[in-house]
Design a protein around this nucleic acid. Structure first.
Lengths: 247, 247
DNA sequence: CGACCTATTGATACGTATCAACCCGAGTGG
DNA sequence: CCACTCGGGTTGATACGTATCAATAGGTCG
């Protein structure tokens, strides 16, 4: 197990997630108060950040990297219930017991706060609570979209939906890539994708090759996917329009 | 389609959901401000409260009855994504477009607010926003538990989990019924249960008879379930302990 | 009484899980 | 340097669970 490491403070104003994280609505003064209690922590790829059942006395924003929330049952079955990308929030005010494992999928940097002072600021800084409320509702919408996928979509639709979701969350901020081919690096292993989609690793693998054989995607190695025609992929997702945001 | 009806105002202090709804943390003064803008609306069983894609200019608390949130895709597949019992909240601040159908399963009474004045109060009354934040996180936890059910549980486990969840949400407020048999009235039709669990109506039916033949439950008519031994049912749910809350 | 809706039950098809073999690239150690 | 191992991924054969299609039963309402 790799040790968590502490990092030097970084100015909030130059923070890459400044405008999307829980602090997005804060003004300069408010930011300064958050800055006073924040501390960075990094985790290596594969490291477990916290376990199901742990008592957590910190909350945090993901600054860089990818982490997952997974819930498991004794016989080994696992279901991913959250995919955390930069700006996503870990933990919830008011509850200290964690309901799921939090795992660093790539190297991860967290901007952390001890629970008690953070909850104090939540009361004193309405902007902070407003943003957290927005983010909670966004996650709830994503979770519900995900429920539709888990409950009603076929394996092929699940894979297509996941690819679209990754494209939306990683490529949209920049420019639209409609018409032109999209190149995509998957942040997850086949196993993690299986846990994400409620499938086995073998089924995930088979669907990838099926989609490749049908010309919907191309594969470069195991982690890179090229989407020649986005509309083709959309048609495979089971979603009528662009309703699907996922995580 | 039955028409929605308006009801006379009722005092908040005698409201049955006073201490669990979004207003739970409000003091008398704050309650009065909410009271000034609230209005009741009732819907008959089976009536659709709002459709996927609608622009909603109200938010509301469920006062009595049961409603569902369902998301559908064009070919007819439906997935329930929320089960609304008294005190649950409908709508979200900041978004006006509805992502799912809201349907009254039984006769339903809503305590409604127009969006604009409600959002104003949300800013002016921290207690209101704090409670809404709590509720959003609770729903998020429930949605994630539900994702585990949808993605990884067998049909039998799904049925058992659902029954446990209904017991917890309807019987727990009163007294513990451990050891003694629990009698339970299902709020949902077989079809609604199917949409809840990501199953077909036939599979739901078969699992009910299977659980009955195995002595885990008894059936009285189609809507009443008797659970002679709660632990027996728990053992069928796939959850190790009591981790499952669902909606 | 017949029409209709919900639920049950049966026969069968199909999709995904399971079990197993194999491949490949990266470390590791002799 | 090469044999070995190990983890992640692919592919194949088969089993099993749930969906699908179809027929029937019971209840309610006109």
């Amino acid at each position: 197990m790799v040790q968590a490491m502490l990092q030097e403070h970084v100015s909030c104003s130059s923070c890459p997630i400044r405008h999307r994280a829980v602090c997005a609505k804060c003004d300069t003064d408010e930011l300064e108060r958050l800055n006073a209690i924040k501390f960075y922590k990094t985790y290596a790829a594969g490291e477990t950040i916290a376990y199901q059942g742990d008592e957590l006395d910190v909350v945090a924003s993901v600054v860089s990297g990818v982490a997952t929330l997974e819930r498991g049952i004794e016989d080994g079955r696992m279901q991913m219930v959250g995919l955390l990308l930069p700006s996503d929030f870990i933990g919830r005010p008011g509850r200290t017991i964690l309901n799921y494992d939090v795992t660093a999928v790539s190297d991860v940097t967290l901007c952390s706060f001890h629970r008690q002072p953070f909850e104090q600021l939540l009361i004193e800084i309405p902007h902070l609570q407003e943003r957290l409320l927005q983010m909670a509702f966004d996650e709830l919408d994503a979770a519900r979209e995900w429920m539709l996928l888990l409950g009603r979509k076929t394996a092929r639709e699940k894979i297509a939906s996941m690819l679209i979701s990754v494209v939306k969350r990683t490529h949209l901020p920049e420019g639209q890539s409609l018409g032109t081919a999209t190149r995509l690096e998957l942040p997850l292993s086949r196993e993690a994708m299986g846990n994400f989609l409620g499938l086995t690793i073998e089924t995930v693998s088979r669907q990838f090759t099926a989609l490749r054989k049908d010309g919907v995607i191309e594969l470069e190695g195991k982690r890179v996917v090229i989407i020649p025609d986005m509309d083709l992929l959309l048609a495979e997702s089971g979603d009528d329009d662009d309703g699907g945001l996922l995580a």
